[in-house]
């Protein structure tokens, strides 16, 4: 793992190399280098399998963090490649030409976060939310409670208890 990263680092700028465990590393790179880096990892360094592609909304920094988790089956190691996108007009190059299944991940991210993967097949088709026309719901500035209350006729009289406190009072009222 170390050797591969050293080798790749000579060609691509990698920051924040983080060791999660012996066989799982995370690295950060820049947006423009991502596709060539992943192509390099796939074709030269044996990371042949895309485990997942996911996004995190880092609203404090004003960025989306994309994680491409790759797996090398021969060496039994995983490598997560992270990249940060601007939250406004979030856009990313598509990698569906490397792995076909990436198109599905990109379709989901487009719908849930509003990240645009131009060129990805069927990316504009509704994935889970049919006919959704508001802010993408996984963005952290989307208030799901407010949306739910406005849309889904909340039943009045609903109350919530903290389970730990509630059970403590029920079972040990004297303490």
């Amino acid at each position: 793992m170390k050797e591969i990263l050293e080798k790749v680092k000579r060609v691509f700028p990698l920051q924040n190399i983080k060791k999660q465990r012996e066989n799982l590393y995370f690295v950060e790179t820049e947006k423009i280098h991502l596709v060539s880096l992943i192509t390099n990892l796939r074709d030269i360094n044996g990371f042949k399998h895309l485990v997942l592609l996911t996004a995190v909304d880092r609203i404090e920094n004003g960025v989306f963090q994309l994680t491409y988790l790759l797996n090398n089956d021969e060496l039994k190691i995983d490598l997560g490649v992270r990249v940060f996108l601007d939250r406004e007009n979030a856009e990313m190059e598509s990698i569906h030409h490397l792995w076909k299944q990436a198109a599905t991940y990109q379709r989901e991210l487009r719908e849930m976060f509003g990240i645009n993967f131009s060129g990805s097949p069927r990316v504009d088709k509704a994935f889970i939310l049919e006919g959704w026309d508001g802010m993408p719901p996984y963005r952290r500035d989307f208030d799901t409670l407010k949306y739910s209350e406005e849309t889904y006729f909340p039943r009045p009289g609903r109350s919530t208890n903290d389970p730990a406190e509630y059970m403590k009072q029920k079972m040990y009222p004297d303490e």
């Binding site: 799901t144 739910s148 006729f153």
Partner: peptide, 14 residues
């Protein structure tokens, strides 16, 4: 009343 999904953006409440 929505149960544990009462604040979900995608499940109905009533």
């Amino acid at each position: 009343n929505g149960g544990m999904y009462y604040d979900s953006y995608n499940t109905i409440n009533r």
